[in-house]
C-alpha cells in the first residue's frame, strides 16, 4: 500500500512538474513509466545539426517556450561558451523549439536542474558514472537511445 501511494505520489509529482511531458495524446512529450521513458526526438534538421554538435539535440518538450526564447536569445553566453549562429539559422531553430516546447512556468535554462530530472537521476547515477559521462549534458553515455528520444534506464 505504501509503495502504491509512493508511486502515485511520484507520478503525480512528475505530472505536476512536467505537465507537457505527460502528454499521451500526441507524439510530443513523455510516455510510459519510469523504465520506458520515451519523448519525441528532435525532427527539425537544423536543430538536430546545430544543437546536436556539442550535446544531443534535447527534445523541445523538455523546456517551456519561455526557456527556449531566452536561451536562443543569448547564444553568445551558452552555459559558459559562445554557441552563436547566423541569424537565419538561429531564428529557424527558435521557431521550431518554441512551437514544440513543453509546458511549465518561468524560463528555466538547465534541464539538469529541473525537478523531474533531479528526481530521475539522484539515486541512479553515482559520482563515478557522472565523471565518466563528463557532464549531465552527455545523455548518450548512459541512455543509448537518447538521440532517438529513448531515455530508458540502462
Amino acid at each position: 500500500m505504501y509503495r502504491m501511494l509512493l508511486a502515485a505520489a511520484t507520478a503525480g509529482a512528475i505530472i505536476l512538474t512536467v505537465p507537457a511531458l505527460a502528454d499521451d495524446d500526441d507524439d510530443r512529450g513523455r510516455r510510459g513509466d519510469d523504465h520506458h521513458t520515451r519523448v519525441s526526438a528532435v525532427t527539425h534538421a537544423a536543430t538536430k545539426a546545430e544543437c546536436g554538435a556539442c550535446h544531443i539535440a534535447y527534445p523541445a518538450g523538455f523546456l517551456p517556450a519561455a526557456s527556449w526564447r531566452k536561451m536562443m536569445g543569448d547564444l553568445d553566453n551558452h552555459f559558459g561558451e559562445s554557441a552563436a549562429l547566423d541569424e537565419a539559422t538561429r531564428a529557424d531553430i527558435q521557431a521550431y523549439l518554441v512551437s514544440h516546447a513543453g509546458r511549465g512556468s518561468g524560463a528555466p535554462q538547465r534541464i539538469s536542474e529541473l525537478r523531474w530530472f533531479v528526481d530521475e537521476h539522484r539515486d541512479e547515477v553515482s559520482r563515478r558514472e557522472l565523471a565518466r559521462a563528463g557532464s549531465w549534458a552527455n545523455c548518450g553515455e548512459c541512455h543509448r537511445g537518447a538521440e532517438r528520444g529513448y531515455f530508458d534506464d540502462d
Binding site: 561558451e81 563528463g134 552527455n138
Partner: peptide
C-alpha cells in the same frame, strides 16, 4: 580527438 565540456 578532443572533448567538449559537455563530455561529447
Amino acid at each position: 580527438a578532443g572533448k567538449a565540456r559537455t563530455g561529447k
